[in-house]
Computed example of a mutant assay.
Amino acid sequence: MQRTHKFLLFILFALTLSACSNFEKIRKMTDEKKKYDAAIRFFKKGQYDKASILFEELLPILTGTDQQEIATFYQAYCDYHTGNYEMANFHFKRFAETFARSEYYEEAVYMSAYSLYKNSPQFNLDQSGTITAINELQNFINNYSDSKFREETSDLIKELRKKLEKKSYEKVKLYYKTSEFNIASLKSAVIEINNFQRDYPDSDFNEELAYLKVQSQFDLAQSTIESKQKERFDDAIKYYQDLVDKYPKSDFLKKAEKLYDISFKESDRIAKLEAEYKAARDKEKSNTSKVGAGDKQK
């Protein structure tokens, strides 16, 4: 059994060496047509790494020939199929620029944008690439409104926007999670929630974030200096009312109502203190004025 296993490994090794040797022979061919035909065969067999090497070597020689168009188009697809999406984007774009009248032109423009979609990073990473992909895909729709790729392109844009939405949501949650006793983070949490609600008005996350806005504003009011507390408690009250108006059956209402009750009582208490302080100051000013007037009469 062990000998059979070793024999099979030896055969596999020998075949690999033979295949490598044959491929190197093809690379050294001086007959461009045979080399080109071999590249096409590798491509159609799905051996994109080998096809790509041959096309890369052939393209400078094929400039101006009938084979240049297909070689350039297939090279771009080789990059795509091997996961080299940045180069695929570059080569598809170059193909479209070089062969504007090609039957593959529209497909190349689409694949250029699609390669950017494939290269879009996970939502927790920098999303510059995602934004670029969305712009390229949107440009494709704008320029080819009747394209057979239109519906698929629209779906890709929605998917990428969902990724940006998730990124923005996680950013809000991060501010909220790190906001305890941190006024700057509490302010940022409220600002980011406002931004999120503006940018993604139909998001499924908005109900939760509407509650978190109440919570963050309440925490901010409690953490801030006394002179700013009433204004911030009033904002918490407003955000609670917004939550009730938009989500009257929300699961977050019970929690939010407790914050509302405390905010309302605190705002009312501070208002009374301010009124008493103002009345005391007005009385003091009035007494001072009377004393001044009496001194003048004397």
Rank of each mutant, 00 (worst) to 15 (best):
Y247N: 03
Q217S: 11
R281L: 10
K230A: 11
A275M: 06
T63G: 12
N182M: 04
T82M: 05
P60I: 01
S120V: 04
S289L: 15
S188K: 09
Y260E: 02
L9V: 04
A108S: 04
A39R: 03
E231M: 14
Q138R: 04
I193C: 11
D204C: 07
G292D: 15
V291F: 09
D37I: 08
L259R: 00
F95C: 11
L116P: 09
Q222K: 07
R150P: 05
D242L: 03
F42H: 03
K118V: 06
L59E: 02
F252I: 14
E152T: 14
I183S: 02
N143L: 08
I157L: 00
E276A: 14
E257T: 02
I262L: 13
Y169I: 10
K187C: 00
Y211K: 08
Y114N: 02
S154T: 15
Y169S: 15
S223F: 03
Q68T: 15
Y110H: 01
I262P: 05
K93Q: 15
E86A: 08
V109Q: 08
A189Y: 10
K166S: 08
F90V: 07
I237R: 03
G83D: 02
V244K: 05
Y176T: 10
E231Y: 13
A113S: 01
Q2L: 08
D79Y: 00
E69I: 06
E69M: 05
K166P: 09
V291N: 10
T72I: 03
K258D: 12
K290H: 13
T30M: 07
E207I: 11
S227P: 15
R3M: 13
P121H: 01
E207R: 12
D204W: 14
F95Q: 06
Q2C: 07
E103F: 15
N89S: 13
L62D: 07
V291M: 15
R101H: 10
A236I: 10
